[in-house]
Design a protein around this nucleic acid. Structure first.
Lengths: 230, 230
DNA sequence: TGAAAGCAAGAGCAGTGCTCTCGTTCCGGA
DNA sequence: TCCGGAACGAGAGCACTGCTCTTGCTTTCA
């Protein structure tokens, strides 16, 4: 079969269109995505969708993968727009881009960083795509370490098992960074997503009335905590 | 109507039983709770449940409220078991109790700290119950501040709006604590729930293989970051 | 004691994910 | 060029969902 036969091209377009409409439904109705409603919007019958996605969960998986990649790409672009040696500014751009994307696509954010869909088990592909964002952080740390710009800290050594975990992460993400610094960076990473999740999921209501400003303040503090100069 | 008439008592018992079975279904099937399945387990017909909860969302609200209170009570007990002047140990007990409760009741944790249910709007009651846990943190900070045991920090001042937000939180939670310290404590709080959410929602798979140990290490670091002695 | 309120059951409505069948259209190898 | 198989959309149907309404029965209270 030729890869760009009419059938194949129509199929690819159809798949994209289904995902596009599904995303729209996701944005308006939330996570309980209705296949039939998507099919209606397409002027099709629900069973026709099963030609493109074997089940509703597979459609969700596709959306999750797209979301991870959208967020990852967004973060990469935001960081690339900042001078390579402005390490703290790069971190801040990374954090801000994550928050901005989450606010712009709250339901897609919920899909990937919220409660997992009940019966749903995330396939390995999504795990791989999920690494993309944290890899951006790794790049900043690695560059800062290679430039000798990364402040060190005298935190106590982690216990053995955690040291091994850290070592494994370090090898993948930022091999030039000291474990103690990486531990702080991971803490900042968790802080970033904790802050965004609190805001997106409504935990900050009646508490933090200016979340953008508060977020910026906290993320600048995290930059200092990591040891990024700037 | 007498408050403890047979009717009223049976009604209260029935309400509790419905919630209990609903919790069990929540634990096994996840967030898409089926009223009919709950009714079946009770040997009732689905419409009978509507005598006790006007809608499925109201049942969810009741479960959410119970979950907030269960977590809050759990945190209070855990902290009370540690000497009042062992501030860092109290913080660690608080953090650990939150994580333990979340691991023991992942779906209830997801209900309150995960993606909000689509059409569902959390009533004010739940917001009030949600404060209970963070109030425990406030108590630790307040006691430490009053004992003069809280290290200060020279973080930059927050912008005006954030300063106002911090001031409002401070007045409610821990009035004796310096704003800059409170900012760090809130950061630690976000870090705590970020870490737990990452673990419960499967974001740490194939990355952190010993989450309990890693969590402890990070939370001890947060205690130092806040400035708690010990 | 009798009216009123609370209760469970059942039927029914509109909606869901998913399966199966049936006629049509397309496409690659002969 | 033609033909068999694959892909496709439509439709009916199944078991399920939340929720409403009606119908009798029981408890409660004046």
């Amino acid at each position: 079969m030729k890869a760009n036969s009419i059938r194949a091209r129509v199929r690819a377009e159809m798949t994209d269109e289904i995902k596009e409409i599904a995303r729209r439904h996701l944005a308006s109705d939330g996570a309980n995505l209705s296949l039939r409603a998507v099919a209606r919007d397409l002027g099709m019958v629900s069973s026709a969708i099963y030609r493109y996605f074997p089940s509703r969960d597979d459609l969700l998986t596709a959306l999750i993968l797209d979301a991870y990649n959208a967020l990852g790409g967004c973060a990469e672009r935001a960081v690339a727009a900042v001078p390579p040696d402005a390490f703290a500014a790069r971190w801040l751009a990374l954090a801000t881009s994550v928050r901005d994307w989450a606010i712009e696509h709250p339901h897609e954010y919920a899909l990937i960083y919220g409660s997992p869909v009940p019966g749903y088990q995330a396939p390995e592909d999504t795990v791989a795509a999920g690494i993309r964002a944290v890899t951006v952080l790794g790049g900043i740390l690695q560059a800062a370490a290679e430039a000798g710009a990364l402040a060190s800290n005298d935190d106590p050594l982690p216990p053995a098992d955690s040291a091994a975990d850290l070592e494994r992460i370090r090898a993948v993400i930022a091999p030039a960074v000291a474990p103690a610094t990486l531990a702080r960076a991971l803490s900042a990473w968790v802080s970033l997503f904790g802050q965004v999740s609190f805001e997106i999921f409504g935990q900050l209501r009646n508490t933090v009335n200016h979340p953008a400003e508060f977020f910026g303040h906290q993320m600048r503090a995290q930059a200092r905590y990591i040891g990024l100069p700037g």
